[in-house]
Design a protein around this nucleic acid. Structure first.
Lengths: 211, 211
DNA sequence: TAGATTGTTAATCGATTAACAATC
DNA sequence: TAGATTGTTAATCGATTAACAATC
């Protein structure tokens, strides 16, 4: 039950399994999928799939596999995706813009996508009030008030490296619980906040090694 | 010397160390940095830093730390970033656009950023010839020829999931060696190609668990 | 010299894989 | 029933951490 009972490496694979299940055509043979098939479509070994699913406690059927609908609902429940999740984005440059459009488009077109963009923030007064797919850009100064008002607990940081720590501090003060950081810097955060990082430059440099 | 002598988990941290070193102000005390300081700024333990750096064979100085300039050059050399790396992007939607601008801007403003965007591809004839920061969009049909002509070996895939496998197959046929895949699907690729995946939805769903 | 910090070895910890009894 | 596939345990593999002698 406690968060620490499921290792993070396992949690990280659950959305991948979920993605595969949601992309399965409705008329998938028998509405059941084996660890072999699920693993193949996920890029994970069958043993790994079974181990992961046994850790979260789902039940497959010996000789058959996992019921797709059951497994999908179970994965959603564990990942908190059975309810709507509100998200704010801080920083509306190239990347912030693209992320904003990505999330709103997905929300509009996929009925099972439960992440909803509810707020955008930038430090530039020039863009204040501008709409991205219907969501207005607010000044970063209003962040704390807006976070409480709208009730979002997840934030995407897409500001330049120099501003990122100050933004993270605002998030901490406003009680944000989860942050996806695109700024190319390691951010200090109170341990109550879960921070994941993603950095295009680092991904590219990492790949460059294999050329 | 062989690629397999350095574990991938270590390789993945090297760009992070490099990023820290490049952000260090010129007048950093004594031009030397300890594993403690480097670890703190990288989000990695000092022991891990020393282990990683000893694996790649860099030499620090006991009692002092690592010479910043020496370590930086060494990291660049190992990551192949001592020479220019040409990159192509396939798929110029929201995300592809943002990535294209990100790479070209960084290339233009940071003298030490050696990744150069040389080609853009899309399947939509409407956008053919359009320029993004000076780089023209080509039709995907010309991919093979352009890859050979321009000589890029690294590709970013930013097309919809449905088209991604076909695009990967084209990459394989054209001798591409490294792929950063943003499409939300697991791609099959010959083992000669190194594929890394990054998926915004999956990152967000992963984080949602911690709400 | 005294203090600091590396490089490395050994210990610990955790994740993946293999194997197979249980059972649908 | 026979064939298939799960769930789980044990074995293996790999990564991180701790500790400290070497030495700048």
């Amino acid at each position: 039950m406690g968060k620490q009972s499921i290792p993070d490496v396992v949690i990280r694979r659950l959305p991948i399994y979920l993605r595969v299940l949601e992309n399965l055509s409705e008329d998938f043979y028998g509405n059941v999928i084996s660890s072999f098939k699920l693993g193949e479509k996920s890029g994970v070994s069958p043993a790994q799939v079974r181990k992961d699913l046994s850790i979260i406690g789902s039940f497959g059927k010996q000789g058959l596999g996992y019921e797709i609908a059951v497994l999908r609902d179970e994965l959603k429940r564990i990942l908190n995706l059975d309810k709507e999740i509100k998200v704010g984005i801080i920083g509306v440059g190239n990347l912030g813009h693209a992320i904003a459009r990505y999330i709103t488009q997905k929300y509009a077109t996929e009925k099972d996508f439960h992440l909803k963009l509810v707020a955008l923030f930038d430090s530039d007064p020039e863009v204040l009030g501008e709409l991205i797919n219907g969501v207005p850009i607010d000044l970063i100064d209003t962040f704390h008030a807006k976070a409480l008002e709208l009730g979002f607990r997840m934030v995407v940081i897409a500001v330049p490296a120099e501003e990122a720590q100050a933004v993270m501090d605002k998030c901490a003060a406003a009680g944000i619980e989860a942050v996806l950081n695109f700024a190319p810097i390691h951010l200090k955060a109170p341990k109550e906040i879960r921070v994941h990082n993603t950095d295009l430059s680092i991904d590219l440099m990492h790949l460059a090694y294999y050329l």
